[in-house]
Amino acid sequence: MSAGTVTTPMVEIKSVTKSFGPVEVLRGIDLTVRTGEVTVVLGPSGSGKSTLLRTINHLEKVDGGQVSVDGSLVGYRRSGDKLYELREREILKQRTGIGFVFQNFHLFPHLTVLENITEAPVSALKRSKAEAAETARRLLTRVGLAEKAGAYPRQLSGGQQQRVAIARALALEPKLLLFDEPTSALDPELVGEVLDVIKDLAHQGTTMIVVTHEIGFAREVADTVVFMDEGRIVEQGPPSQVLDAPRHERTKSFLSKVI
C-alpha cells in the first residue's frame, strides 16, 4: 500500500435500513471501516447493534442501502443499474471471508474442538483434512488451548468455548472479523482471557468490528468508537473523543451508566 493510492475500505455501509415488521431497527446507517482498523460499536440494548453486524455477513438481509466488504457488495451482484440477489451458494462463499463470533459461542456440541475448527475449512474451502487439522492445532495454540483439541465443547468453560469459537472463525483466514458481544455471556473472571485474545488479534492488524459493553477494551484497542441509539449512529470517532469528550447527550448519559 504505497502512499497516494486510494485503498478500498474493508467495510462500506451506505444508508442501510432494516425493519422487523413495523419496528424500524436500522434507520439509515453509514459506516466505513478501513483495512487493519478496529471499530467498537457501543449502544443501549435494542439499538440495532447485532442487526447491523449481521447485515455485514448477510445473516440479515437489508431493506434498503448497501453493504460492501473488500469492494464487493454483500448478498448482491451489480449489473448496470440493477442489483441481482446472489444465490445461497455464492452468499455462503462470501461469508467464508468474514468471521463471526457470537455472544453464545454456538459451538457444535456433538463435534470435538478440533472438528469444530476444521469443519468449515474442509467443507467450504475444500481443504484437506490433514491441512485443516494442522491449521486448527496452530490456532488452538494461539488461543492457549492446544491441549483441548479432543475435548467436546460442554467439557470447557465459557471462556475456553469462546476462544475455540474465535479459533473456528480464524480457520477460514477471514479478511474481516465480527464480534457480537463476545464476553457478555461469560462470568466476570473469564472476560479477560477472551479480551486478551481479541486484543492480540487487534495488535496484529486484523480488521474487526466488535460490539461490546467493555469500555476499557474500547479505549485500549479501538481506532474508531461508534455509538448507536434507536437504529442510528449518534456519533463516531476515536475513543479519546467519543468516550472521553462525547458531544451528544445520549452518548453522555449512556457512558455515565456503563462506566
Binding site: R89, L92, R95, T96, F100, F102, E119, A124
Partner: peptide, 19 residues
C-alpha cells in the same frame, strides 16, 4: 444458533443439514 453459526462459516447447505 447452530444453523446460524454454520451459515456464518459458509458451510454448504446440505452439509449443514447432514453434519
Amino acid at each position: 444458533g447452530q444453523t446460524q453459526a454454520a451459515a456464518a462459516l459458509g458451510i454448504p447447505r446440505l452439509r449443514q443439514l447432514r453434519r
